[in-house]
Nucleic acid binder design. Sequence first.
DNA 1: CCTTGATAGCTAATCGTTTCGCTAAGTCTG
DNA 2: CAGACTTAGCGAAACGATTAGCTATCAAGG
Lengths: 337, 337
Amino acid sequence: MATIKDVARKAGVSTATVSAVMNDSAFVSPELRARVVTAIRELRYEPSLAARNLRRSRSQLIALAVADLSNPFYARIVWSAEAAVAAWGYSLVLFNSDEKPDTERRILSRIRTLGCDGMVLVPVGAANQYQPHEFEGIATVLLGRSIKGNSADTVTIDNWAAGRQAVDYLLDLGHRRIGSVTGPMQLSTSKGRLDGMIDAMAARGLAPQPGHIRSGEFREEAAYSVARDMMGSPDRPTAIYVANGVMAIGVMRAIADLGLRCPQDVSIASTDTVAGAGGLKPRLTRTEHPIADMTNEALRLLVDRIEERGSEPVRNIVFQPALIVGESCRPLRADAG
Amino acid sequence: MATIKDVARKAGVSTATVSAVMNDSAFVSPELRARVVTAIRELRYEPSLAARNLRRSRSQLIALAVADLSNPFYARIVWSAEAAVAAWGYSLVLFNSDEKPDTERRILSRIRTLGCDGMVLVPVGAANQYQPHEFEGIATVLLGRSIKGNSADTVTIDNWAAGRQAVDYLLDLGHRRIGSVTGPMQLSTSKGRLDGMIDAMAARGLAPQPGHIRSGEFREEAAYSVARDMMGSPDRPTAIYVANGVMAIGVMRAIADLGLRCPQDVSIASTDTVAGAGGLKPRLTRTEHPIADMTNEALRLLVDRIEERGSEPVRNIVFQPALIVGESCRPLRADAG
DNA sequence: CCTTGATAGCTAATCGTTTCGCTAAGTCTG
DNA sequence: CAGACTTAGCGAAACGATTAGCTATCAAGG
């Protein structure tokens, strides 16, 4: 690889001049500029980011650490994030914490070592697992989930509203025995959605039966097994609110395996679906998040923090979910209530 | 951020010693080692990769450039790749060329500037669009698609076998008028799969009708429109081989919108499905690729190239597809053939 | 004609590591 | 005990860029 010195020698100028041409950082006479440009082209010179970054103490790298790359929801985030990061002139370094706090800890340290200019993090741990120094000195935006007491910018959705909307819809259809398959309770997303559900029911003087609320990992398999268990009992709910898209697939599979039909026997509403956007039958009734907008907003905030070294106040952006009606819910027949 | 000098000063040793402790690159007496370790911990020292890499001319970065991040097939690759890269001690820089050769060119240049130690590339251009120097000096593995005449290692699937297997299956069910919705002809994947189909039919003295072979972008929308067009005509095929999973979703949607049912009215077989793995109804009959194995193998080859500077002969690994029978195909009723 | 100011381009310091070569102290060996 | 080996640890030179500060050169003004 040619270095700046090779270019300087070939063009008969100093390295400072080459640098000035590369960065347009100072006036260079047209004649010299031409010689430099030619030399750059002929040697196929590409500046070494390692050297540049060492000097500038910038890396042009933005890290994205998501909670579960096997989940299409995060795959969608990755897609948007790559585009946004590239548009801002950075490159994306991708990490998957796989919902494991230990892995996440290693990732944070790695991000620091790499000298990433900033990071977008979907945190997987409970609030008390984070040391303040883990976020010091590196611009951070928390995406999707927040950490209580943390002073980073956040971009989240209104989980409470998502649960409330979905369950209000089920209630409007006449359902009264409503169950939920949801994620780990230490995550703000699971907790918020369940609270929305409970408040929706409470507003009509109802409460879910204890056995009808099941929480577990945000994965298809986990959802399958708890749904199978819950729906196998005689007082099973007539409708289920599932807290995420991947789990919804597991729940639908469980229902099919039990010989029940959706929506004829059980109505299902969920939050945050992306899975099988085109293919799932019946199409899920769900509350959707504007994933692309959220991701773009997260990167806008992040780049803002990186480039304006100023310390503006912490920003918390909350997006509202939208209810998309599919074919997975039915009004409850009067005799079954 | 603390630097190695701070640590050296605090521990009362030279920077060389600190470096030796960090990298275990030379014997350091237990006493000094202990002082250094303490200083590192107290200052929360993390070495700067920028500096280390400048010196070592390594970056610990592996680039992955995929053709289309919105395609679950590539999302699946990204998932596997992140895990493999991390397991080998590198970090993953992700790029999306979005099937655009121009974007890909910029990405290649960026990868070079970043000083990535190696790259895994899903190429999007025709063979003649690549300059040899674009791959010089950086370890490269081509994944999924190959470039004729290129001397990089490749990991691909046997596309011909995939097309042949799927279409043989349809032929065995009695179908004779078989159509195909496939991708751009300049890509080795599309071409190979179509060739497999044609050979399968030729082996039984058949040939597809010209209007029954439609190629276009590897996207759902493209597939939807060509399928709608093809299936709208009276001599429509009784079965369709779709060259990729995302397109299959588009084809199924088109069929449903035309009032046709799958598999009752039309049988569909495809290659490379991942989309809606859990959810799609009816479940597709398809040839599947061992995506995780392929990705792991690609990274094994790559790391091998990076770390053994030796120039072993070029390796081309070809994986075989496996036919997975779903519910999207039916024997042809005798009267309709 | 000398001073002043402007400015194109150069020299050299710097970023934070790794690593080559050296010193000095210790250990054998005959 | 002197000379020959070892070896723990140090000093300083890289790596390849950026950039502050300097040096010529030249034009304009008095």
